[in-house]
C-alpha cells in the first residue's frame, strides 16, 4: 500500500506544497521535486556532508531526514539569496580557491554558515579547551574540527579553512 503525504515547508523563501511518498528524503524533495539542484547527493548516508542544508538555521544532512518530517520548517540551500554569510562564503571560496571539482562546495558553504552561527551561539567543540567559557574563539583548529562532517575528495582543505576564516571576519 502506497501512502502519499502532503507536506509544506519554506525553501529559500518559496512555499511549495508537495505530495510525497513518505520515503522521500529532504534531499530528494529539494533536488527532484523543487529542482534546487545546488544541494548535492554524495554518499546518501550522512558520511560526506555534500547534502548539508540549513533547517531553521541549523545545518543538517538532508539525505538522512525525511521530507515529511519537515512540515512548517524553514530550509535554506546554497541557492538562498537572503543570507549575508552564504554570499560572503561564496566570494571567499572563489578568492581562496576553496575547491577543485566543486561537488562538495555547496555542502561546505552551508555547513560553514551553520558552523559560524554555532560558534556565535557558544556551541563548544571537541577541541574547545575550556568548556565552562561561553565565548569561543574562531581558530583554524576549531574550523577543522567543526567541518569534519564535510569531505572534500580533492582535498582543498587548507583553502577551505582560509576562505571560512576570511568570511567569518567579513560578516559580523
Amino acid at each position: 500500500m502506497e501512502q502519499i503525504i502532503k507536506v509544506r515547508f519554506s525553501a529559500n523563501g518559496q512555499h511549495p506544497e508537495l505530495d510525497l511518498d513518505p520515503r522521500t528524503t529532504l534531499l530528494d524533495a529539494l533536488r527532484e521535486h523543487l529542482r534546487l539542484t545546488g544541494v548535492k547527493k554524495g554518499c546518501d548516508h550522512g558520511q560526506c556532508g555534500a547534502c548539508t542544508v540549513l533547517v531553521n538555521g541549523q545545518r543538517i544532512n538532508s539525505c538522512l531526514s525525511l521530507a515529511v518530517m519537515h512540515e512548517g520548517d524553514d530550509i535554506a540551500t546554497i541557492e538562498t539569496e537572503d543570507s549575508a554569510i552564504i554570499a560572503a562564503l561564496q566570494d571567499a571560496f572563489i578568492e581562496h580557491d576553496g575547491f577543485q571539482c566543486g561537488y562538495c562546495t555547496p555542502g561546505q558553504i552551508c555547513s560553514a554558515a551553520g558552523m559560524l552561527d554555532e560558534i556565535r551561539r557558544g556551541v563548544p567543540s571537541h577541541v574547545t579547551k575550556l568548556l565552562g567559557e561561553e565565548t569561543i574563539q574562531i581558530t583554524d583548529a576549531e574550523v577543522r574540527e567543526r567541518m569534519s562532517g564535510n569531505i572534500c575528495r580533492c582535498a582543498a582543505y587548507p583553502n577551505i579553512v582560509r576562505a571560512i576564516m576570511q568570511a567569518a571576519g567579513a560578516v559580523p
Binding site: G46, G49, T52, Q58, R59, I60, N61, L64, S65, S111, G114, M115, E118, R121, G122, V123, P124, S125, H126, T128, L131, G132, E134, R146, M147, S148, G149, N150
Partner: peptide
Amino acid sequence: ATDLRVRTRYEALSRALLSGASAQLRNK
C-alpha cells in the same frame, strides 16, 4: 553538549557528545 549545566557539572558527558559523529548529525 552545549547546555552550560552539562558543560560545568557533567563535563564527561559534554566531551563524549562532542567527540561523536559530525556537527550536522549532532544537530539532529
